[in-house]
Design a binder for these strands. Structure first.
Lengths: 337, 337
DNA sequence: AACTATATTTCAAACGTTTGAAATAATAGC
DNA sequence: GCTATTATTTCAAACGTTTGAAATATAGTT
C-alpha cells in the first residue's frame, strides 16, 4: 500500500543505467550527456524522486543545517531575529533548526546535544539567562563547527564571535532625547543583572546624563527580573522618593514598561499623565497606548539575525578564520511616536 | 587541528573490540556483558562520542523528527501552539523542525519539500491563507507519513486529520456574554474569508443572537483582511449606520480589535468610551488596555498544539489507522477582565 | 583499419550506523 | 576431559548517496 520513497537505484533500474549516472545527471555533471540528463530528470520528476538528506549528509559530512538556540519564541525580539536568520540562510541553501531553551540551562544543554547529533554545520546562540558555563558549546568548536553568539552572550569572554545590539548607544540616545525634552529626573528601570547587556544599557544611560550635565541619582535606578512582582517593587522604589519624583523613564523592555504603567495608573499616581517613557523593543503594541510612551528603541532584530547568519556563513566559507574573533554591533534607532 | 567527530569505529579500535559490540553496548543490548558495556560507555563519555543522526536515520528509515509548517511565528497563537507541540513531542524522543510559510503558498511548498527530503516521520500543518490546493502534501501520505492539520485547515476536505479550536463555541459564548450584559446592537468584525474558520466564528455569533432572540442585522457585520486599512474600512462601515450604532463588538482577533479601537479613539467617536469588546486571542497585551475590551476568547493554543502532536503520535504508532480520519475540537474559554 | 583523442558511462569504495546470523568463549553437567 | 548449554562477541550486509578512477563508447585522423 504505502510506497517507500523512490531512490537513485529505482531510477537507475527503470532507465537501465548505473546509479552513478543517475546521480551525476541529477547533479548536472558536465560529463553526462545532455540527452541522458533529460531522460533522468524527467523520470525523477515523474516519480517524485526526493533525495534522502540523511544519505547525502552522511556522505558529504555536512548537513547544510544551521542550528539556532534561543531562549524563547514568545519574545518578539527573538521571533523577529529568526526572520533575519532564515532569510539570509535560505538564499544560500541552508536550513535552520530552532531550539528554545526557555531560559533553562538544562534545556540549553539538551538542545546543544541534539544539534551536535544532527551535525549542524554551524551554530547561532542567544544564551539562557542562567548560562555562566559554556562547556556544552565547546564540542562544536572542537569539531570545527563555528559558533556565533548573538544578543545574549558570554560578556566576559573575548574568544568568541558575537553580534550584538548596540544597546549602549540605544540607551544613550533615549536618555538624550528625554533630556532634550527638558527632563531632569529621568529614571532608569533595568533588567535582570545576569543578562550580559544589562550593564551596557545602564552605562548608556549614565554616560548620556553625564555628557549633558545632569547629575546621577541612585534613587532613580531600579532593576526588575521581568516578572510582574519584581517590576512593581522596582517601580515603587523609583516613585517613593520624597523630592525626586521621576518625570521620565527609560525601561529595559517595553513589556516591563507596560507593567509599570499599569501599576502607576492603577494607583492613580499624580505624575502618571505627564510621565514620558521610552522602552527597548518597539513592539507593535506600543502604538495602541494612548498615554506615556513617547518613543521606542528599535533594536532591529532582523538585522541582528541577518548579521549573525552572515558572519557564520563567512566562517563556514573560511572567508574569516575561525580564530579571528569578531564582534559586530548593530545600531539601535529611536522611534518617536 | 580540528577533530573529526568520534565514531563507533574509533571507539572499537581503542577498545580492541568490534564495531557491533560497541554499538550494542551503547544501545544497552541484553546480550552484551555488563562489564563490557561499562567500558564502552565510559570511553564514549570520555571522548564525547556523539552518534551521527544521519547515519542512524539512514539505517533505520526514520528520523524521529516531526515537521511543522505554520504561517508565522509573530502570531502569538502559533508561537504558543509550538510550546504544546514541542512539549509533547520531546517526552517521546521526537524533535521538531518548524518552517514558516509566511502565508505564501510558494514558501509552503518549499517547506514541504525540505521536510520531505528530511524524511520527517510526521507532519503537522497550519496552512497558509492562500492554500486551496493540497497536492504538495500528498507525497507525505503516499509514503505513509501521517499529516495532521491544525487550526487552519482544508475545511471542505473530510479526508484528513484535523485539530481545531472550537471557534464556533468561542464566538457563541462571547456573543452570549455581551447579550447578557444587556447589549442589543452587537457588531461582528470578521477576518479574511479565505481562512477556514472565519465562517465558523460568524456562525457562532449568528446562532447566539438567534438563541437569545436578538435580531440579526447585516449592517452590524464587516470583514477585514488583517491589514490596517481594511480594518479601518470595516470599522467605518460598522459605525456609519444611522440608527444602529453598535454598543458592543466581537472581533476576529485582538490585534484587529486594537486597530479598530485606536481608530475610534482617534476620531473621538462618541460611543467609544462605553463600547464593550471581545476579541479572539487573549494576548498578554490586552491587560494593558484601560478601556474597551471586557473579555477575551482564550483559544488555548498550547492545548491545540498538544492535541495535534498527540494525534500524530498515535498515528505513528498505528494506534489509530491512518485512514480513520479524526477531527478534534479544542474548546475556547471566555476570560473576563 | 588502426590509433588517438574525447565524450560518456560504470565501478567500487566510502560515509556511520544497525542487526540477524554465525562464530566463539565460558560455564555446567557428567 | 568431553559434550551440551548458555553467554558473549563478531561478521557482513544494508540504508541511499557521492565521487575519483577505470572502463567503454564514439568520433576524428591518418
Amino acid at each position: 500500500m504505502q510506497n517507500t520513497p523512490v531512490t537513485l537505484k529505482n531510477l537507475a533500474e527503470k532507465l537501465k543505467m548505473s546509479i552513478s549516472t543517475v546521480s551525476k545527471a541529477l547533479n548536472n555533471y558536465p560529463t553526462i550527456n545532455e540527452f541522458t540528463k533529460k531522460r533522468v530528470q524527467d523520470l525523477a520528476r515523474e516519480l517524485h524522486f526526493t533525495p534522502n538528506k540523511s544519505a547525502i549528509n552522511l556522505k558529504q559530512g555536512k548537513s547544510k543545517i544551521i542550528g539556532i538556540i534561543l531562549p524563547n519564541l514568545l519574545d518578539h525580539f527573538f521571533t523577529r531575529s529568526v526572520y533575519g536568520l532564515e532569510q539570509f540562510a535560505s538564499t544560500l541553501g541552508y536550513n535552520v533548526i530552532i531550539s528554545q531553551s526557555h531560559d533553562s540551562l538544562e534545556k540549553e544543554i539538551q538542545s546543544a546535544n541534539m544539534l551536535l547529533q544532527t551535525r549542524v554545520d554551524g551554530l547561532i546562540v542567544a544564551i539562557s539567562k542562567h548560562t555562566q558555563d559554556f562547556s556544552h558549546f565547546n564540542e562544536f568548536e572542537k569539531m570545527g563547527t563555528p559558533v556565533v553568539y548573538y544578543t545574549r552572550n558570554p560578556s566576559f569572554n573575548l574568544n568568541c564571535h558575537k553580534v550584538l545590539c548596540n544597546t549602549f548607544q540605544g540607551a544613550y540616545q533615549a536618555t538624550k532625547f528625554l533630556i532634550e525634552r527638558g527632563h531632569q529626573h529621568i529614571a532608569y528601570l533595568g533588567g535582570p543583572k545576569m543578562i550580559s547587556f544589562t550593564h551596557d544599557r545602564f552605562n548608556g544611560y549614565i554616560h548620556s546624563l553625564k555628557d549633558h550635565g545632569i547629575p546621577f541619582s541612585a534613587e532613580l535606578v531600579a532593576y526588575t527580573d521581568f516578572d510582574k512582582e519584581s517590576t512593581i517593587t522596582a517601580i515603587k522604589s523609583l516613585f517613593s522618593s520624597e523630592e525626586k519624583i521621576p518625570t521620565a523613564l527609560v525601561a529595559f523592555k517595553e513589556p516591563i514598561l507596560f507593567d509599570a504603567m499599569k501599576y502607576l495608573r492603577s494607583i492613580n499616581h499624580p505624575n502618571f499623565q505627564n510621565l514620558e517613557c521610552i522602552g527597548f523593543g518597539n513592539t507593535s503594541f506600543i502604538s495602541y497606548f494612548n498615554s506615556p510612551p513617547v518613543a521606542s528603541i528599535e533594536e532591529n532584530p532582523e538585522s541582528v539575525g541577518e548579521n549573525a547568519m552572515k558572519l557564520l556563513l563567512q566562517l563556514l566559507n573560511r572567508n574569516i578564520e575561525i580564530s579571528d574573533y569578531q564582534k559586530i554591533l548593530v545600531d539601535c534607532r529611536l522611534v518617536v511616536h
